[in-house]
């Protein structure tokens, strides 16, 4: 595989969010990091884009993405008080969508801050 170099990559492991990291990747995984700390290095080296897991699981059985989305929407819609939680290992764009979802379903939205 061809080696690609990503300069000024941003690490999202801890709250420092260092944005001066150089990453060398072979298309499926990061093979080398420059300027990253020990935590950032293990964060980048321990993720790849191989299909280790099914697209989705519904009741423990493999399902398509569309089926899982429909099931999730039904559960949240039918709930009297849904809770939207997590949000720290994701992007701000996804967080915005999460707020929309919480408002639409009349739920509670909360993050790791409250832990």
């Amino acid at each position: 595989m061809e080696l690609t170099v990503t300069k000024h990559a941003t690490c999202t492991f801890c709250g420092c969010v260092c944005d001066d990291i150089e990453l060398h990747s072979d298309g499926t995984r990061v093979v080398e990091t420059k300027a990253a700390c020990i935590l950032g290095k293990s964060w980048f080296l321990n993720h790849d884009v191989v299909r280790h897991y099914p697209d989705a699981l519904v009741d423990g059985q493999e399902a398509t993405l569309g089926e899982a989305i429909e099931a999730a929407a039904n559960y949240l819609y039918e709930a009297d008080l849904p809770l939207v939680y997590g949000l720290s290992n994701t992007t701000c764009e996804a967080q915005r969508q999460a707020v929309t979802l919480a408002e639409m379903t009349g739920g509670i939205i909360d993050s790791h801050t409250s832990l």
């Binding site: 949000l87 290992n89 939205i109």
Partner: peptide
């Protein structure tokens, strides 16, 4: 702050 984008969660919410 600990987890990567927990600050972002605060800001966006």
């Amino acid at each position: 702050r600990g987890h990567g984008n927990v600050t972002g969660a605060d800001v966006v919410v």
